[in-house]
Simulated scan of single mutants.
Amino acid sequence: MKRIAALLLFIVFFWAPAQAQLGLKGGLNAAVLQGTVGTDATYQTSYHAGLFYEMKVIGNIISIQPELLYSLQGTERKSDFENYRSKLHYLNVPLLAKVTIGPVYVEGGPQAGFLLKAREDGVMVVSQEGEGGATYATNDRSSWNDYKKLDVGVCVGAGVKLPLGFALGGRFNAGLNDINNVKSVRGVNDPELKNRVFQAYLSFQLPSIN
């Protein structure tokens, strides 16, 4: 895993072919963990930010774009018995193929996500005391050991390039592997947790390197 990350970082920052553009990007996430037990899991709003490096392959039409992004993901649960968020902090490294026609582009490719931090916070009911009575407890803890440290997924997206190097885009990231690291003794009905993230972003590209 460390060798793969090092190789991708080398590509992003040190390989500079003709017509390459370094850029910055950031925006909003709508994230959920698909497979969360119960029906009360909802998308939580968070953010992502980082760098990308667009390398032209065929003219201005086809390019390869590695990225290095910090992304806050996870899920949110709301019901009569609990209201808390699982916050998963990732370093995501997508490697995308990009096709641009005029100002419009589409993109897609694999992504490796490396878990940096995991926490849960919120409140939940711990006991019921007669009609209308309930005792609540605050839950704020590290959940680092509850999740696997590598998330492998795919990304698809589209956007439009604007004047002065800016662009607006959207993307969907789907994790392919189960990141649940908590298993019961019997292993029966253990949930498979997979990241699902919708992103909207604004980017800015520096002038081309020739």
Rank of each mutant, 00 (worst) to 15 (best):
A41V: 08
Q205A: 15
W15D: 04
S208F: 08
L115Q: 11
P103S: 14
K25M: 09
A112Q: 13
S86Y: 15
S46F: 10
W15P: 01
T100K: 15
L91F: 15
V185K: 01
T36W: 07
K56R: 12
I11G: 13
R186H: 00
Q205I: 06
I61G: 11
W144I: 03
V126D: 03
I62P: 02
R3W: 12
G159C: 09
H48I: 07
A49S: 12
N189Q: 05
M124N: 10
A97W: 06
I11P: 03
Q111A: 13
G50S: 14
Q44D: 06
S143M: 06
A31F: 04
N29I: 02
N83H: 13
K87W: 10
Q128I: 13
V57H: 06
K149L: 10
G157M: 14
N60M: 07
L24A: 10
V197T: 14
N177Q: 00
L176N: 02
D178Q: 01
F166G: 04
Y105N: 14
T100V: 04
E54P: 02
G109R: 10
S203P: 03
A20N: 13
S127Q: 10
Y201M: 05
G165V: 10
V185Q: 04
V188A: 02
F166H: 10
F204V: 12
G169R: 06
K98P: 03
E129R: 08
L22I: 13
L115N: 08
I179N: 00
L168F: 05
G59R: 12
S184P: 01
N210S: 15
Q111P: 11
Q205K: 15
V156K: 10
P94M: 08
S143D: 06
T138P: 00
S208N: 12
G175S: 00
G102W: 12
I179D: 03
E82K: 03
K25W: 02
G59T: 08
E192K: 12
G122L: 05
L69R: 07
D121F: 06
P66S: 13
L88R: 10
L28E: 02
Y53Q: 14
L162F: 09
D40T: 06
L51D: 07
L150C: 08
L72F: 04
D190Y: 01
G50M: 11
G153W: 14
V57G: 11
F13Y: 14
R196S: 05
V99Q: 07
